[in-house]
Design a protein around this nucleic acid. Sequence first.
DNA 1: ATTCAAAATGAAAACGTTTACACAAGGCAA
DNA 2: TTGCCTTGTGTAAACGTTTTCATTTTGAAT
Lengths: 344, 344
Amino acid sequence: MNEKIATIEDVAHHAGVSIATVSRALHKPNVVSETTREKVQTAIAATGYTANVMARNLRLNRSGMILLLVPDIGNPFFSAILSGIEKGASQAGYNVLIGDTQNDPDREATYAAYLRSNQADAMILLNGRLPAPLANAPANATPPVVIACERIPGCALPTVIIDNDEASFIATRHLSDLGHTRIAHVSGPSDNILTTDRVAGYLRALKTAGIQHDPALIYRGDFSIDSGIAAGRALLADPKTRPTAVFCASDGMAIGVIVAAKEYGLRIPQDLSVVGFDDIPHAAAYDPPITTVRQPRRRLGEQAITLLLERLGAKPPFEKNDKGPVIVPTELIVRQSSGPCPKA
Amino acid sequence: MNEKIATIEDVAHHAGVSIATVSRALHKPNVVSETTREKVQTAIAATGYTANVMARNLRLNRSGMILLLVPDIGNPFFSAILSGIEKGASQAGYNVLIGDTQNDPDREATYAAYLRSNQADAMILLNGRLPAPLANAPANATPPVVIACERIPGCALPTVIIDNDEASFIATRHLSDLGHTRIAHVSGPSDNILTTDRVAGYLRALKTAGIQHDPALIYRGDFSIDSGIAAGRALLADPKTRPTAVFCASDGMAIGVIVAAKEYGLRIPQDLSVVGFDDIPHAAAYDPPITTVRQPRRRLGEQAITLLLERLGAKPPFEKNDKGPVIVPTELIVRQSSGPCPKA
DNA sequence: ATTCAAAATGAAAACGTTTACACAAGGCAA
DNA sequence: TTGCCTTGTGTAAACGTTTTCATTTTGAAT
């Protein structure tokens, strides 16, 4: 019962063979004879040997790690995406290392350096920004990187996204179809590509419906409940200019708007229709249950890891998809927070 | 512009020194002369050298990884804990590798083997169960493992938890103080130590208040919204036996109970008081805002990583705590989902 | 028996570091 | 001058694997 951890040499010694044979017995069983294979197996059992992964990785010049860059791991929105990625990666024998960048470019750069220093074999970006070291990389050899969630304009790397413009269009059209003409939009931070796309879809739907766009009806939030409350208070304060419907770029903000609406004594959806985005679990259990755009988050993660594994030459665990940016479909889930426009 | 990644040897060559000197210039700057140090620095800049972390780790026999075992990474409850751990770990130069066990003992064992195979230096358990390889470990040398969230009875490893019994006691007492005598409890899965502790606190509070315990008023859920809805339907169906207050072991279940209560036309809190557990962000924005026990989740993560870094001999980034299981304080947040017992 | 291909094995190099040890140069006291 | 400590540097071993290449063993065909 020696405390020292057994190495391949201990196994070799114990089995009376060379370390090369032990290694082969493990990784190329067909090339080693039946009898020695058994000897090695018993020796492994006897010594309690576990391969030192670091030594192997050094030799093979790989790390078995996939680095996942997330702006904020504390944000539950990413949980399901994460889960999908982790599932696929672990099936392919990879581990997922999560890098919480906190939207700090320095931290992004630090993590991106993991690729160079062999700490990670590949990377998935959930943060919608190309880390500096990558942006400067030579164009001839594309790094093993996949972008998910937010497309990066002008970046040729494999990408998996939802069609934010279209999803936003459909959600807004749902409201105009209900007869609403004063439809507000609570968007995300202005430097966010999601915001741009969703605002575009919103405006397109207004135009299609022949509704004149009122710039005062767009409020910039940050996806949080609190910013939704602020948006609601701002948009609903004046009964004269008050919209009859609000389309929010996140469910959290939709909840916030409803909280604010109740402060003003407005009933949902009789006095005000509210539509969210994401379909987080709480959207269905809210009072009233929230009409929202469902984002297939786990699916998004699965597609991202699939793209990456393809790129790495491993066999992807999920169904493959065509070339070009992969677009996972969204779905408008109509619940009780949206209804016909009240008579004036 | 050679595509090959620069090694320490390239740097040494470029600077006209030995690789040993380069290594020393990086890690023991005071032992190398000013002039060579500069030569090395320029050589590093010229070659774009980044140390191969795997080679270093092999040599140093460490991995720089802290393995975090989570039952389900898709569950947002863990997000904030995660965030606290990640912050502390990265400050101490460690990376956090998240292992999603999906409550599968096999996966737990697989991940626990990372410790042996040098893929991880230490481990934090969020899943309330000791992986098999650890349970069989020799008692003399305790592995670098910290347990968080759920205590493991009879396990001497460093642990950081909340006082579930006491928190539950206080929440229940809050209801009895409001005059309620028929107080139901929606608990978690029965094999969960959290459940045991919270039920105990609930019963203790009833006893203290001189309330006769009715076993029919305990419902087993699984912390999810859906199980809360089921609990609410079961407990509230019969107006004759209906409780006037429900204490739930999670906010999700509290929301579920409220959803069910509204189905029966019950007003919260006039007809029914509901108290939750965790204080997730949505609890405050629900209608009505939910009275709940706040779990300092980020704090919990911080304490866990602190304990672990202490164990590893690194200097902990957060304030140290005394010996014994660390107990992070909870707080009863009284909002509008709980009120006086209605007159009969 | 002899020969030869096939099969199985071992010796040793390589992966890129860190560090113990040896050594050279320089300064200072005798 | 000699000796000796100090300071800086280089040489080479070590970390635990995988894999190339050479060598041995096997077994069948002559």
